[in-house]
Design a protein around this nucleic acid. Sequence first.
DNA 1: ACATTTCCTACTAATTTACTTGGTAATAAG
DNA 2: CTTATTACCAAGTAAATTAGTAGGAAATGT
Lengths: 155, 155
Amino acid sequence: MRLSTKGRYAVTAMLDLALNGVDGPVTLAEISENQGISLSYLEQLFASLRAKELVRGVRGPGGGYYLGRGADDISIANIICAVDEWVEFTRCGGRKNCSGGERCLTHSLWDDLSSEIFDFLTKISLGDLIRRGEHKKADKAAHLSVVNDEGSRAA
Amino acid sequence: MRLSTKGRYAVTAMLDLALNGVDGPVTLAEISENQGISLSYLEQLFASLRAKELVRGVRGPGGGYYLGRGADDISIANIICAVDEWVEFTRCGGRKNCSGGERCLTHSLWDDLSSEIFDFLTKISLGDLIRRGEHKKADKAAHLSVVNDEGSRAA
DNA sequence: ACATTTCCTACTAATTTACTTGGTAATAAG
DNA sequence: CTTATTACCAAGTAAATTAGTAGGAAATGT
């Protein structure tokens, strides 16, 4: 299991793409600008995303990236897997010399937990996230019309 | 959000501690042996775990570590937070110049997702994991009484 | 032809991970 | 009281990963 800042960048970029790519492709330069991620790092991430067909690139002027498929068909797990390898839990390689011992038990417990986290992230799609964001935006607007306060302004 | 191999080591070690610490403390040397983690790295991890009072150390011969509280009162999130800092999502620092823009929207979406993953891991305790493992062990034993085969004996 | 953009490779600085080394402090047992 | 055992502590380090730079080549719309 792996869920690093790299995965966060990828998810963030994909969200940006889903939000801004409704009419025409989005350039990496725009995402770089929007999200504060270096262009070349985005290129690396998008190479991975493209390999898993989560995005589709269009070259030339007016080009950029589209989502590879509908936002509802792209899970967070898909995105994180694409850039973070993931796949290899502990599993003891399935054969190491921890047959039956405590080591194998704890490893399989971690393995189960990993699978569960994976399932959890598989069930959340880009589309889900965006819709929730829209709700929240609406809620926030409703709140703002009543309570005109930022709320969080800690040091 | 952060969920790296470091967190995995910590969870694995805590599982080992919970499983073997039923009658008397467990030494880091034992955990090191069981789980294949270097002693000093365990010391580092346990320094963090102890700071959050997730474990309690006893010095001297016959000493070792106890869980800081019951296995049911220690969540996976507790453990990962202790060793991985976590806490700082993107949040734009709450003030950066992305007020209202796409950047802040995507960041807050990621933020929400992080919180959700956190909640998820908060609801799973060490005790939960162990009980699941016991179920699995029982299942396995039942199987073994029928199928008398190790299964995995690859090179 | 030209500007734009993806696409590709190699390199690098910074950070994190995992480990090593070399201790000190507490404490149970002889 | 000495000794072995253990937690505890700090500094340093090799390896891996993260994030970014640099310098292109290959498409492609204008």
